[in-house]
Design a protein around this nucleic acid. Sequence first.
DNA 1: AATACCGCTTGATGCAAATCAAGGTGATTA
DNA 2: TAATCACCTTGATTTGCATCAAGCGGTATT
Lengths: 250, 250
Amino acid sequence: MTIQVTEHGGELQPCSHSYQVNCGNCRLNSICLPLALEADDIAQLDNIIQRSKPLQKSQHLYREGDNFQSVFAVRSGTLKAYKTTDDGREQVTGFYFPGEILGMDGISNNTHASSAKALETAAVCEIPFSSLEKLSTIMPSLQRHFFQLMSREITADQQLITLLSKNSADERVASLMLSISTRNSRRKLSATQFRLPMSRVDIGNYLGLTVETVSRVFSRMQKMDMLRVDNKEIEILDIESLRGMANLGS
Amino acid sequence: MTIQVTEHGGELQPCSHSYQVNCGNCRLNSICLPLALEADDIAQLDNIIQRSKPLQKSQHLYREGDNFQSVFAVRSGTLKAYKTTDDGREQVTGFYFPGEILGMDGISNNTHASSAKALETAAVCEIPFSSLEKLSTIMPSLQRHFFQLMSREITADQQLITLLSKNSADERVASLMLSISTRNSRRKLSATQFRLPMSRVDIGNYLGLTVETVSRVFSRMQKMDMLRVDNKEIEILDIESLRGMANLGS
DNA sequence: AATACCGCTTGATGCAAATCAAGGTGATTA
DNA sequence: TAATCACCTTGATTTGCATCAAGCGGTATT
């Protein structure tokens, strides 16, 4: 019933906050799973959701090959999902920010197809999939919403496929910066100033580039006065030319 | 109620076969949507499915931006799904063989996120999504199966992401040949001899390579006696060394 | 039968990003 | 205070694939 944490072989205990966190009062509920649900539907959803102690940086939420039980919503912090190739290299398949859902790739085989690890201290809501399924049959709007979430994951992956196969290093990094900017503003955070939660290596492993190339692109962008980069602190100085560099027509 | 075919602005009429095709007697039903359904559940599914005149080669099933109404199951022939980038280049996101489902990327926005076009004469079953949703609420095994299908699409996309970002031209082409081989054998066709339904350009646009590179890889494989290539006819001569070249550890 | 066109192959050349290498900075530990 | 380590940056060199270019065989067009 608790989240299996394979990292240290231990289990996370459900946490008891002094105040009770629930979907109804969560400030992410307009962008997260409860989106498009009625108040009393949200209460029912809330019943099946389990909250637990936050994950520490670099702790795993689940690992490739683990038995699939639940999908997860990010409440705070950031996680990366990744696969390890036979020769030990790492392909990052996604970064997950608050309000976003991960773990859906485990449904097809009842086994997680990728690993997920916290890039910084992160809290997640665990949604046991069997409960979600049951609830979905009696709550059509939840069923629909979950279909849409999975579809969104598919289109996001297809975006990445196109990016990897057709775009230059400059375009890839610019696109990622714009994506993070957009996702920040959906959470009412600054679209132009933020702290990257992931390392250069992670960015490279996501975008199909080496660290060195990522670093060089940042330097180039800085020289062109599009971006101010101070280690992980990013300030977008000229979002229009950044869009031009990303060159995605969106 | 009929399939919108944007190609010639016309509409495909439901076709009346001399014998009635249905999910119950379809020889693909063990690998297609009916998988894991009881006989009378299959009958219900059958009621919502619409069959129509086959698509001719290069005819579109739907286009990026079209209003999303249905997902489709391939009954015969092959289709490709693709997106067109701003600068007019084409990213193929998938090939769909008989028994496989396409169109699920349209669910998230009620708009098709990619286009689908027949690579050869192809027949599809149209599954209106709203009906599928309704049926899913009263038929939990269908709901589960459809969740699984979407999840499978996600894992397939993630495979492709890894392939594009981490593997060489040789590895990519070898992987595709193995994938087609596997999918053929699931349909009880030869795993070692088949005809490629797609052009070299399509293969290149799928694998993030140019035609020339694809052609060179085929020549190389042939010189190494792994494959016999005669235009679109493929014979796998040494599947083990092909696996070695693909180098996916699977 | 000549022509054009399309899909495929093969060769020569160029280039963007990988690889190899070295050094810098800040955080943690001894 | 020094030492270690993780992470990032910058430079020099290499390389795998793209690009450019040409030619071939099959099919459709006139």
